[in-house]
Design a protein around this nucleic acid. Structure first.
Lengths: 338, 338
DNA sequence: CTGAAAGCGCTTACAG
DNA sequence: CTGAAAGCGCTTACAG
């Protein structure tokens, strides 16, 4: 059916090896020979079989993206992340494979490693924020090219690119405190999600530093969805001694808080200030626009991918941990309490 | 480093072929031999090299997802779609590869076909709604296993699974008309997007059938983003003789319309009714909750994937066009005009 | 610059 | 039920 390098070689009277050199661009070939081969390639409409090529090169040609949480794929966060991955891969011949690695336990590390040992991928990018904490902790034993994106992994030898989540929440706390808020609530994520702990910790650290009473600074836990943010908002805002400001651990839940306030007929930021974390593409266009912490997801993904590619090129395991800056974006949803 | 079937065969004194039979599960092996082999597999910690396996089987083992539009990956639509794909692939050994097929012209069909001819994928799922109309039209010439999801392709021989977009918009029009609305605006998508034409056509067909004057039923075009919906809303709602109801071609733009109304201090549905299309996961939880057309994205994707797998199994090109039902979900954002 | 040989690690097809 | 041979379509490593 389709032609092979052998067909091309026969057609123009050179060896298979010469055809391989012309096609791959590796090794030198005289201009005349190259032309001759290329004409045959055109004539026979040859296209290389990458499976054969990859087997001979002892690789798969695929970078895997490990997705630990079902809801991640449909999120704007994932879109930005993939944008960064594609940017880093654009001028290479690597392809992207998606793997659902829903993993909760220690043993699941083996399933992840199997992707590498069966040569389904040559390296893996793991999207950390929605991963289980204890799962990430197993990575140092995995012995495969792997970069974690979105969360610092403390186990030695695990390469990760992340932003300073603790500082982001702290900046938001300081912003609200500076405006005069003293009763501030926090809506976090499930604590088995790796970054949820960090963000919640930043809030409780801040409250302790400022000696804010625990009773006035309640912590609620959602699941990062708009719906759970709305539920949190309905509960918090109808309580006696309701907070004058609420921080959500991600923008989606902040959106949910806004829906709750709307449902209750409360004005934002007049009656309550709302802050988020992520700076989703829609955060600026909502009414009110959302005060939030911008995290450079695209850049983290691009950098992480680049680290992985360098490791794959050099044969040395990816290493190092890199932090990226977060920044506070103040918009309409926060103001002085009245 | 890692062991091969040959190592296993040597270790337990059988032929390589017997090991292959045990591992693949194809062909028969005595229970005793199987046990012996499996013990060696455990001892040597053998894992099959899928690249070698796939080369020998003349396949790649990957199903490709063709993504025609950058913004698609970060959308809830894509999340639901991938959910359906994964459901269909769950009990198989196929893996998922992602390809950015940003393609606008006729020639780009060749780039798409190259994915197949270079054996990067064995078959492709193309996400149609955000694809260019003229690009889809080239598919009949492609000669590769391919299923289009989300849009009927009229070119003969192209397999597609889709929902009745025309009927969905018509139901929404009838709902609003039935409530008493006569000045209805429509916010569509860019006409080079394949489904944008269908949805807009359904609206103009309806207006003509009901003899609604063009001046009272303006058509605006956005780009499916919240931002563009907001811009449309700001323009339409501030015009003289503003519409009493607005239909958006997708939920994201409907959300944008709601933001615009909010910005202008208008009540929904008191001052203006809003309808969308998609039924995003968040549509029910927003305030007001959104009246919209539910399209079974997950089911379309699962069915399309199944058709592709069947074609790959049988060696017969995927064929047929299947429609799935849409349904109108009436919620709080629509009511009688006052 | 060019080529013949061996090999990547499996499976298909044929025998027995 | 089991095995020896040939082959999948390339690349690596070595010669010349």
């Amino acid at each position: 059916m389709s032609s092979t390098m052998e067909d091309v070689a026969r057609e123009c009277g050179v060896s298979l090896m010469t055809v391989s050199r012309v096609i791959s661009g590796r090794g030198s070939v005289s201009a005349a020979t190259r032309d001759k081969v290329m004409r045959s390639v055109k004539r026979l409409d040859f296209q290389i079989n990458t499976v054969a090529s990859n087997l001979a090169r002892s690789r798969s040609g695929f970078i895997g993206i490990g997705i630990p949480f079902k809801g991640l794929i449909g999120s704007a966060y994932f879109g930005e992340l993939m944008d960064g991955v594609q940017a880093a891969l654009a001028s290479t011949e690597w392809e992207i494979a998606l793997f659902d690695i829903r993993a909760r336990t220690f043993e699941d590390g083996g399933r992840l490693q199997a992707l590498y040992r069966t040569r389904k991928v040559d390296g893996l990018l793991v999207v950390a924020p929605n991963a289980h904490e204890e799962f990430l902790a197993t990575f140092s034993t995995l012995r495969m090219p792997l970069v974690v994106i979105g969360k610092q992994v403390d186990t030695k030898g695990v390469c990760s690119v992340f932003c300073d989540d603790h500082r982001g929440i702290t900046m938001l706390c300081e912003h609200l405190h500076g405006l005069g808020h003293r009763r501030i609530a926090f809506v976090g994520g499930p604590l088995f999600f790796s970054v949820a702990q960090t963000r919640e910790r930043a809030f409780t650290d801040f409250c302790q530093r400022k000696r804010l009473p625990k009773s006035g600074t309640p912590v609620w836990r959602g699941d990062y969805s708009l719906k759970s943010g709305k539920e949190a908002g309905l509960a918090l805002l109808q309580a006696a001694d309701a907070p004058t400001a609420i921080i959500a651990a991600n923008d989606m839940m902040a959106y949910g808080l806004i829906e709750a306030a709307r449902k209750l007929g409360l004005d934002i930021p007049g009656d309550v200030s709302i802050g988020g974390f992520d700076d989703l593409p829609t955060a600026a266009d909502r009414v009110p626009s959302l005060t939030t912490v911008h995290q450079p997801v695209r850049e983290m993904a691009e950098r992480g991918t680049t680290l992985l590619l360098e490791a794959l090129d050099s044969g040395v395991a990816p290493k190092g941990t890199e932090t990226m800056d977060v920044s506070l974006v103040v918009r309409e949803s926060t103001a002085r309490p009245r």
